[in-house]
Design a protein around this nucleic acid. Structure first.
Lengths: 240, 240
DNA sequence: CGGAGTGTAGTA
DNA sequence: TACTACACTCCG
């Protein structure tokens, strides 16, 4: 029986956390976690822990298995629309076969050292560049040309095309629950050290001012476009 | 733990089917179905079942939850677009409050006796009449006027308006997977005894002839309307 | 360590 | 939104 003693990290002093790896049976390789209270009791589950600690301590954000408080629990619920999911690099060959994903296996020594900080997987910084050269087309194969950006929308990052910037903005609009405002640091700062200075939760554009007039002008344009769309739809329906 | 043992009905002999009702937690009230194989394994899902049975047995028509073979399975997979769902009669008052819908409860004795024959609910014969007087409107509250029908489309049924016929046709087009051809019996026969002579799977129109020329003319009209729609959409996008 | 019981990501 | 399929917990 392999045991690893860790500091209790966040629990009251005197508590110990222990992991035991199962070494045989169907569940071989799985680890069981338990806690040792100051008075020597062995706690084997979260309900048992809260029974012992009483109502005074709120364990709702406490992850029994990892022993850490998980504040990001709430941020996780993101609207999931398959058409909005960011592209994932595909391998060409053998892994098209089904692959079983194993979770919660004991982590390797190297990995274990990285365990601090947020649990969410790191985001690739300039993922937009993987989309380079891809284009949408309509059902008669005509390529739909990309949009132009207003002059006051400025990209921030190394060698980003207009297309990249658009991808960045649309991804931010669809995937983020917080306001989309652009990068706080200026262009030069970010270019010098993107890894440190870029805000991955924001699209790669500099922050910009939108006036009430800009908004009003846009509203008019939208109303006109809607009218035209509406008429075209009506004609479509009357023909069918 | 409430358990009901049923005969395996269609599965190889020696298999047992079990239902367990969840009695606590967020998913309280849900029933889990599983199967016990002759060798004592517990099967918890359809994929797991087919993994165990191997390729030799085709489970595509087998409904894991009910344990029965469903031959009408194919007819059932209907494109589900909320804008195409038939209207449901609404009560005016107290039930506007939220009401909890309970599914998958063990059926009452009375209901159980009805279990033979197709599970689909019966269709109301002239449901279109419930729509009388309702009208679509666009977002500036202009009423969108109904369409006209070509002269060779003839309604079949008591006091159906043009509007009713259109509703009938569009519902048939959206909800049926079989060809939409209209009523086989003639107008007089149907009017005499709708309950017997009408074909509920078809819209309430007489069968009619469409020539190749009709089709070609229509194709041209559609292509033109598509072009206009496409242009309006482009303009819409460029404004946004 | 097993497994009944429940949670929940992914998908239709 | 609802459900399937399976991961995971908790306690024997």
């Amino acid at each position: 029986m392999e045991k690893r003693r860790l500091e209790s990290g966040g629990l009251p002093p005197g508590w110990k956390r222990e992991e035991v790896v199962r070494k045989s049976g169907l569940s071989s390789g799985r680890t069981d976690v338990y806690y040792l209270s100051p008075d020597g009791r062995k706690i084997r589950s979260k309900p048992q822990l809260s029974r012992i600690l009483g109502d005074s301590i709120d364990l709702s954000a406490f992850d029994f298995r990892t022993g850490r408080i998980n504040h990001s629990q709430l941020r996780k619920r993101i609207r999931h629309d398959s058409s909005l999911v960011l592209p994932i690099r595909q391998t060409a060959s053998i892994f098209k076969q089904p692959v079983t994903v194993i979770r919660n296996r004991p982590e390797s020594k190297t990995k274990t050292d990285l365990k601090h900080g947020p649990q969410d997987p790191p985001r690739q910084l300039f993922w937009e560049k993987r989309l380079q050269g891809l284009q949408a087309c309509d059902n008669s194969d005509d390529i739909i040309k990309a949009l132009d950006l207003p002059r006051n929308v400025q990209g921030v990052g190394p060698e980003l095309t207009t297309e990249n910037i658009l991808q960045s903005i649309s991804a931010a609009l669809h995937l983020s629950n917080s306001p989309v405002v652009g990068q706080n640091n200026n262009r030069a700062t970010v270019s010098k050290n993107p890894g440190v200075n870029i805000d991955a939760t924001q699209p790669h554009i500099q922050q910009m001012i939108v006036s009430d007039d800009d908004i009003r002008r846009q509203e008019v344009k939208v109303m006109e476009a809607r009218k035209k769309l509406q008429e075209a739809m009506k004609e479509m329906v009357s023909v069918l």
